[in-house]
């Protein structure tokens, strides 16, 4: 019996390591490729590099719009996060902790955003944003990202909000504290980890967004990282793999840093607080 158990846990560990390998090894592989000369990547099929170079990074950092794209991506992502958080917190509080007729229908209506065939309705979106003077603006792009971050963000906060006891509001009501003040002074501090999580969610939604940025940001100097990267990598007839690898690493590093700093808060913020 004891033996069986340890075989099972060894097997489990093996499967976990395999999953982790499939999910993360490509990043290490591309990191290695980014330090190899392109010609060697194309000709040499060995796993161990013959020579290492930083030329791919030199061309990424000094001959492409990398820094501009990073700044643009950050601007759009920060707008998205700043607009999303109040909308998500207010929306989630409304759906999960107030009572009014139709709140279930409204929350389903919000989730209906994801029915929207994004690739297919960029034309009408372009028209409407053109009328609103939001074309070629980072704010317009951020509004689009916000619309797609908010509905799921509201749902992500549910576990946290539902885990708070209703006595919080009851006690506040007995003390004569209004519902709005209860939300701001009592509930929001309680859901702080949840807010970090939805901020990360909104950030990633914006950081990875491709289609709306491509449609709405016309000027080259407004382009975000995914647009710029796609242009320099897949815009050419032959892909320069060394350079592409450096571009991929350069785009993954900001996300890597984000998760290094606040990554462990993500899962904590979307669960009801059982994770230490």
């Amino acid at each position: 019996m004891k033996l069986n158990f340890s075989i099972f846990s060894l097997l489990r560990l093996f499967v976990i390591i395999m999953i982790l390998f499939i999910l993360l090894a490509p990043f290490l592989w591309i990191l290695l490729a980014s330090f190899r000369p392109n010609m060697e990547l194309v000709r040499n099929q060995s796993l161990i590099p013959n020579s290492l170079t930083i030329e791919n990074y030199v061309s990424l950092f000094s001959k492409s719009g990398y820094w501009q794209w990073i700044i643009n991506s950050l601007i759009v992502a920060i707008y998205t996060v700043l607009i999303s958080i109040p909308l998500i917190v207010a929306g989630a509080y409304s759906v999960y902790r107030t009572y009014f007729w139709g709140r279930n229908a409204l929350s389903l209506f919000l989730l209906s955003v994801y029915i929207f065939p994004t690739a297919l309705l960029v034309v009408p979106i372009f028209r409407i944003f053109n009328d609103l003077k939001l074309v070629d603006s980072h704010l317009g792009c951020a509004l689009m990202n916000t619309a797609f971050a908010v509905p799921f963000g509201i749902w992500l906060l549910q576990a946290f909000l539902k885990s708070l006891p209703p006595e919080l509001e009851e006690a506040a009501a007995v003390d004569g504290i209004g519902r709005m003040r209860t939300l701001i002074q009592i509930i929001i501090p309680q859901v702080a980890p949840g807010i970090i999580a939805i901020a990360m969610f909104a950030f990633i939604v914006s950081w990875t967004e491709y289609l709306f940025a491509m449609t709405l940001l016309l000027s080259n100097d407004l382009h975000t990282l995914p647009i710029g990267l796609t242009g320099i990598v897949f815009g050419q007839y032959r892909v320069n793999w060394g350079f592409a690898a450096a571009g991929a690493v350069g785009s993954a590093i900001p996300v890597f840093l984000l998760f290094l700093i606040v990554g462990r808060w993500f899962i904590r913020g979307i669960s009801a607080g059982a994770i230490k």
Partner: peptide, 28 residues
């Protein structure tokens, strides 16, 4: 695992496309 498993979701699709086009390349 709980922190880092999420990385593939957090990078732009362009990065994913580069990664896997390179991994799947026929010759190298």
């Amino acid at each position: 695992v709980r922190t880092w498993i999420i990385l593939p979701w957090a990078v732009p699709a362009a990065v994913t496309a580069i990664l896997w086009r390179w991994m799947f390349d026929a010759s190298s």
